[in-house]
């Protein structure tokens, strides 16, 4: 299992049947492949609908129906379309149970940076600031480091997407909760030791007394 699949499989365990969830572009979109049977998610697409279905086969591609990454999708029975104000009312108004998205940096206070690298990469925040600011739970799903360089920091150095909003961080090495006392390691991938996980993390990890294996 590669790192991305480990992360997606673990994030898929976060949800209960009927949860309304927005998944960011990339790794988070793999999550629905791994939710257990009996758990049906209501997936939101911030460009204006609830009820994202699977990608269509070539014969059924409809360019009026794309996800927030511009990729053709389908909708499930019971889906609903709306405009961008309603869509972000859902997001900002706290009507989503969770959002799952990647990060360039996240820190021990739950700050998140994922929308720009000054002077290098300025794609814009799109809906990310609203999603992180508005969803009931913000789950960061990302590889633990960027080619060995820590992404889980004491303090984010890049411009923030939102301050103090991250609830949980899931990486291929473990699962960490953001608490008022800092980051709490609650699960670990048994392929790594706790010492190795700490060594790959700039922020200090407190090990939960109930620490358990990810799988």
């Amino acid at each position: 299992m590669d790192a991305k699949e480990i992360i997606a499989r673990r994030v898929a365990q976060e949800f209960k049947d009927g949860d309304a969830v927005n998944l960011g572009i990339g790794l988070p979109t793999m999550v629905p492949n791994f939710v257990e049977e009996g758990v049906e998610l209501q997936l939101q697409s911030e460009n204006g609908f609830m009820g994202i279905g699977p990608e269509p086969d070539e014969a059924h591609v409809d360019m009026d129906l794309v996800n927030a990454g511009g990729i053709p999708v389908t909708v499930v029975p019971g889906a609903a379309f709306f405009d961008s104000a309603a869509s972000f009312g859902i997001i900002r108004g706290g009507h989503l149970d969770a959002t799952v998205l990647g990060a360039l940096q996240v820190d021990e206070e739950g700050n998140l940076a994922n929308w720009m690298i000054p002077g290098k990469l300025v794609p814009g925040m799109g809906g990310a600031m609203d999603l992180v600011g508005g969803a009931k739970r913000v789950i960061v799903a990302m590889t633990h480091t960027a080619k060995g360089s820590p992404k889980i920091l004491k303090k984010c150095t890049l411009p923030l997407t939102a301050a103090k909003k991250v609830s949980r961080i899931v990486t291929e090495m473990g699962v960490m909760d953001v608490t008022p006392q800092g980051l709490l390691l609650i699960e670990y991938n048994p392929e790594y030791t706790v010492e190795q996980i700490q060594a790959a993390t700039e922020a200090k990890l407190t090990v939960s007394s109930q620490l358990k294996k990810m799988f």
């Binding site: 961008s84 104000a85 009312g89 925040m125 600031m129 609203d130």
Partner: peptide, 15 residues
Amino acid sequence: EVVLVPQGTLAEQIR
């Protein structure tokens, strides 16, 4: 010149 705005904010500013 490029001004970047959070998506939900732009929607509400227009509304």
